[in-house]
Simulated scan of single mutants.
Amino acid sequence: MNKPNRKDIIRKEAPLVKDISVLRRKAVELEKEKRLKAAIKEEKDRIEVTLEEKAKELNCMFGLSDLFEQHGNNIEQVLQSVPALLKASWKYPEITCTRVSFDEKEYKSPGFRRSRWKQSSDINVAGKKVGEMEVYYLKKMPNLDEGPFLKEERLLIEEMARRTGKAAERIQTQKQLEVEQDSLRNMNIALREVLVKVQDEKRDIGEAIQANVDKIIMPILHALESEVAPERRKYVSLIKQNLEEIISPFTSKLSKEFMSLTPAEVQICNMIKNGLTTKEIAQLRHISIATVSRHREHIRKKLHIANKNINLPTYLNTFMAEDSQPYARVAYYI
């Protein structure tokens, strides 16, 4: 019997070696596929956990916004519901307890007690600490980003505390504004009462001035007018007319209506209204007739009657006749 040589053995075993090689490659591919599936599952689980935590965060912040919308400016009613919001938003709500302190008052979740596993954030109003938000785990849990807590939970509790502080600051400012508005409203009422009283006093003074002019000064001027020389009577008449101006303030009204008039022009208007001629005005003011004439031209322009067929004395008397309430004018003049 012939003994098989090495080449024959290799040729016969070649298919077997090839099959073993194929099986090994398949085993490697299966192992890679198994690891890939495990990695995909792990990544899927991580994403699901992340989405779940994000959903909790959003629910927590939206819940806080809803509370402020429901209760408006009542910060106490808002804070009573915040511990439950926080408890439901942490990774292990079944072993979580929470507390919110604000302005020396505390709001707690049922069965609250402190433990060594704590996460907290200060509540600040206008840069000053007025309270604190606290989250506790009642038993030890696996370490994550901050002890047993997630980094997202750190960001959430800080955001909740920040929003609460800002809302409290807004409410505080609004209440202070309402107090100031009430105070201002009361001051306005008091001021109106004072103004009414001042107007009453002005009216009384005006009536007293008119009575004194009518009863005391006018009779004296009437007697004086009959005693002085005819050429001087014009001056007495002018004094009488100026006294009447205290009761009927022509110059005040004219200056208010035509603010471009100078004081000298206003005085000349008063003389023209009282019937003085250009010559008489020049003598009384110690100026030339030409100067008075220029004043008259300027006055007509400022009264918007230049180049119009309007008599200046008539216009001025008509202007004054539009106001026929002497007592009101006395109050204004004073």
Rank of each mutant, 00 (worst) to 15 (best):
R233W: 00
R233I: 04
R233E: 09
R233V: 05
K234R: 09
K234L: 15
K234S: 13
Y235G: 02
V236T: 02
V236R: 04
V236S: 03
V236H: 02
S237H: 13
S237W: 12
S237V: 14
S237K: 13
S237M: 10
L238P: 00
L238D: 06
L238F: 01
L238T: 07
L238Q: 06
I239V: 11
I239W: 00
I239Y: 08
I239T: 06
I239L: 06
K240G: 03
K240C: 02
K240M: 06
K240T: 00
Q241G: 06
L243H: 01
L243P: 02
E244M: 06
E244R: 06
E244Q: 07
E244C: 00
E245H: 15
E245Q: 10
E245A: 15
E245I: 01
E245V: 04
E245L: 09
I246D: 09
I246K: 02
I246P: 05
I247L: 07
I247V: 11
I247A: 12
S248T: 11
S248W: 14
F250L: 09
F250E: 03
T251S: 14
T251K: 13
T251L: 07
T251G: 13
T251N: 10
T251Y: 07
S252M: 09
S252C: 06
S252A: 15
S252Q: 08
K253L: 08
K253W: 12
K253C: 08
K253G: 14
L254I: 03
L254E: 03
L254S: 00
S255H: 03
S255R: 10
S255Y: 01
S255T: 11
S255A: 14
K256R: 09
K256P: 02
K256T: 02
E257M: 13
E257L: 10
E257I: 05
E257Y: 08
F258G: 09
M259K: 14
M259P: 14
L261G: 02
L261E: 05
L261F: 00
L261D: 07
L261K: 00
T262L: 13
T262P: 03
T262G: 11
P263I: 01
A264S: 12
A264H: 04
A264G: 13
A264Q: 12
A264L: 12
E265S: 07
V266Y: 04
V266E: 05
V266C: 05
Q267F: 08
Q267C: 10
Q267N: 15
Q267E: 12
Q267S: 14
Q267W: 11
Q267D: 15
I268E: 11
I268K: 04
I268S: 10
I268D: 06
C269S: 09
C269G: 04
C269D: 01
N270Q: 15
N270K: 15
N270D: 11
N270C: 13
M271R: 01
M271D: 05
I272C: 10
I272K: 10
K273V: 04
K273E: 08
K273T: 06
N274C: 11
N274Q: 12
N274E: 15
N274P: 04
G275F: 00
G275Q: 02
G275D: 01
G275Y: 00
G275R: 01
L276R: 15
L276H: 14
L276T: 11
L276E: 15
T277C: 05
T277S: 14
T277M: 10
T277Q: 07
T278R: 13
T278A: 12
T278S: 09
T278C: 11
K279G: 03
K279S: 10
K279P: 03
K279M: 05
